[in-house]
Design a protein around this nucleic acid. Structure first.
Lengths: 238, 238
DNA sequence: TAAGCCATGTGAAATGGTTCACAGAAGAGC
DNA sequence: GCTCTTCTGTGAACCATTTCACATGGCTTA
């Protein structure tokens, strides 16, 4: 994947506290982790949350600063309050409706995945150009033909879209989406979308993610072998 | 998504030319883009490749430095040579076989997606704990029960795995994978995997990606965001 | 009330990554 | 051959993000 998000944060003069994209991602993870906590855990320390999220205590505290922090030195952070503060920082998100373009294998699995696992943003409509699929209901969501995109997006105030399509048509679809008023696109197609300024694109490039993994896994194994051969005495836990 | 990548390339003190993960991802994108070029384009300039990949000319040149650059000032880069150099940098990747754990909706769509679109790494085996699926063939790939994981991984020298599962079992599966000798995991489950040092994990967190998108798409409507999230400016003309 | 502990919040330093800017090279036109 | 143009390759500057380190302050125990 790639996660080529290109946002150049310049001029954070005084407008907006300038939250970094990385921090936003982690806040999302923190929130999910916190929400899964048993009720028997009303408080949590930064190092505990860090361990659960694969982060570091300092990182967690730094991230939490942007939501107006609320930790108490001896108890840690109040879980419920944290969730609430994160939600407040994300305020408005819950009102976003999502459109999915592409009801193929990937599209359908995304519907299933998000319906099960994600409750703040929901898929409001599915679009596909295959006439066999349109005007049917896929996993409980109505599938429209592409021609109705603009109408449905406007009627339902949809602001973000997921592109789950083979490359060829992704750019064309992105243009239709932005023309219909979409301001955010989650793109699974392995192409770089050109969109008007003001529209945000997040790419998930599975092939690139695999390449990256293969590259580092290889060197990782070399490193492992090197360590094993060098000395077999000292095991480092971490 | 998130792309919380936790690959501990700590201590790359002086070993390994120290290529950054971001550069590796982009090289993967460059290679794919180059491979799709028509034969009528034997040479390409850094700014052309940048425009195609949503990057900048300086970034492209900087990235290409790590593969031992080969550009000619007046012609640009020889496409075929570039591909070859990138492959050399990724040397060994082509020998990686991939295991997929989870033959549910997401798993199956990944098989289809990768079979169609990706030719350097291929899925060698699928594993699932559902007895209805195992010992069947899914999209042309044999599906084994979890119990055979270790044997198959060893027999086929599989070194990287994809986890396409609901959260609950992901950690457990990660442990089985690393025990079987896997050194790289592409994780779609929204949990933070704990793996032994030397194993590389790349997370694709679709829910976090959507959150990030929603956050920036929302603010994207503001004047401020226009500047911050700019996508297509910066890709200059020249 | 005082002392000890431990975790927070946050400047400041370190690290990682991107962009700038320019020297140098190679073709094009004259 | 000389000059003009335009590109590459790369040191240096710049910016973003992470980590360090410590002052601060609440809680507990006595």
């Amino acid at each position: 994947m790639t996660f080529i998000t290109r946002n150049q944060h310049k001029a954070q003069g005084q407008r907006n506290p300038g939250v970094s994209p990385k921090t936003i991602e982690r806040l999302s993870v923190y929130r999910r982790t916190l929400a899964n906590l048993p009720a028997s855990t009303p408080f949590i320390y930064s190092h505990e949350l860090a361990a659960m999220c694969g982060s570091s205590a300092a990182q967690v505290r730094r991230d939490l600063m942007v939501i107006g922090t609320a930790g108490c030195p001896s108890r840690g952070y109040a879980v419920a309050e944290l969730i609430e503060l994160i939600d407040k920082r994300f305020a408005g998100i819950s009102s976003h409706a999502v459109a999915l373009v592409g009801a193929g294998t990937l599209g359908r699995s995304l519907i299933a995945y998000l319906q099960r696992r994600y409750h703040r943003l929901s898929i409001a409509a599915v679009f596909d150009k295959d006439p066999d699929l349109t005007s049917r209901v896929v996993y409980g969501i109505r599938c429209y033909p592409m021609g109705e995109l603009r109408r449905v997006v406007e009627e339902q105030s949809i602001s973000i879209a997921v592109i789950a399509l083979p490359d060829a048509s992704a750019q064309e679809v992105a243009e239709q989406l932005t023309a219909a008023g979409i301001t955010g696109i989650l793109n699974f197609a392995p192409v770089s979308l050109r969109v008007p300024s003001g529209t945000c694109v997040v790419d998930i490039d599975i092939a690139a993610a695999l390449d990256k993994l293969a590259f580092f896994a290889r060197t990782g194994r070399d490193q492992y072998l090197r360590e094993v051969m060098d000395e077999s005495r000292d095991k480092h836990g971490h």
